[in-house]
Simulated assay, not measured.
Amino acid sequence: MQSIKDTYQRITDTIVEQLEAGTKPWVRPWRGNVRSSLIPRRATGDAYRGINVLMLWISGQMFGYEENTWMTYRQAQDLGAQVRKGEKGTLVVKYGTFTPKEREDDEERSIPYLKGYTVFNVEQIEKLPDRFFGPVEEIPATPVPHLETVETFVKNTGAIVNYGGAKACYRPSCDDILMPDRERFDSEIHLYSTLLHELGHWTGAKHRLDRDLSGRFGSASYAGDELVAELTASFLCADLGVAHDPRDNTAAYLASWLSVLKDEKRAIITAAAKAQSAADYLHELSRAPGGGRGHSV
């Protein structure tokens, strides 16, 4: 059994990896469906509390889960369901105190305990009863304006942009950019800041500017390209006359990335140079006769 110290360390490592990668995974610039704003729930319907809420929010944001109900492997089996092969669970904890029998007369002798265990989101589980899936409710639609300057710029780069995902990301295997539906974004500022950030990642593909995109989440190389992408978005927003994400994420990103890359004093200079190259490259693609070879849908 893992010690309390080990469990605390796993929790701390999970959150630190997120922050060191320059990401606040519990904050995103688009709206989920109605379910996504709820406190995570157990299979019984009871709400999680404390650190478990944060851990499940982090996991939900990382993997794009819309549902907020979580259960153990055994709970799924007891319901006649099965966790899909290859799915990775999320750490949560049970904590409290107990008093050994020989100390039952001494309340001050209560011993705290913290036990870590693994849960899975219902979206990771097959053959669950329908009651574990909330009805999809329509998001109040507030049209996000189209900024033709940015739309034309992105289209002319040739980047393939697909809307309809649960998260925003560049997918090297597909060589495309996946975005949530436009209606999920709070404003055109959030939408285009996010799109141009992912376009920054798109430039790093081997057949483009050939940056290292192989880093795992939480690694220095991952954090480094996140910084390049964010600075690229900042440069492009300025070039195209678009306000950058007003939540002031850039300062938070820079602080955490500099912490991750503190052993390399030239990290910010290198990242800024790579971001400028990415922005220049995208401008060149957009100005090229006929633009690039892609499309947005």
Score class of each variant (00 low, 15 high):
D280R: 03
D212G: 06
D105K: 00
H244N: 15
R31A: 10
Q75S: 04
Y65H: 14
Y163D: 04
I39L: 12
R41C: 10
Q75D: 09
R216S: 14
G64I: 05
A252Y: 11
A288D: 07
Y163A: 03
H190P: 01
R184Q: 15
G158L: 05
W30R: 05
T12W: 12
Y8Q: 14
I58S: 01
K155E: 11
Y192W: 08
E188V: 09
E107N: 03
S37F: 13
V136S: 12
V297W: 10
A47Q: 11
A255L: 12
W57P: 03
L236P: 02
R35I: 15
M179G: 05
F63P: 03
M1A: 15
G116W: 07
T232M: 07
I58E: 04
E188L: 11
S221D: 09
G80C: 05
I111M: 09
N68C: 09
V144T: 09
I160V: 13
G224M: 14
S37N: 10
Y117E: 05
L178H: 14
K262F: 08
Q18I: 07
P40W: 03
L261K: 12
I139R: 11
H295K: 13
S277M: 15
H283C: 06
A159C: 08
V228K: 09
R131G: 00
L54C: 00
S110T: 09
D176K: 10
G134H: 14
P135W: 01
E66A: 14
A47K: 13
V92T: 10
M71L: 15
L231M: 14
Y222A: 07
N156T: 04
K206T: 11
N33G: 12
D186S: 13
V150N: 04
V260Y: 07
A275N: 02
R35G: 12
S277F: 11
P100L: 02
E67R: 02
S219F: 06
A220I: 08
L196S: 02
R74V: 11
L261E: 09
K88T: 12
E226W: 01
S193H: 00
L191S: 04
S214E: 10
S173P: 01
D106W: 03
G241Y: 07
A273G: 09
W30L: 03
N162C: 01
H190S: 10
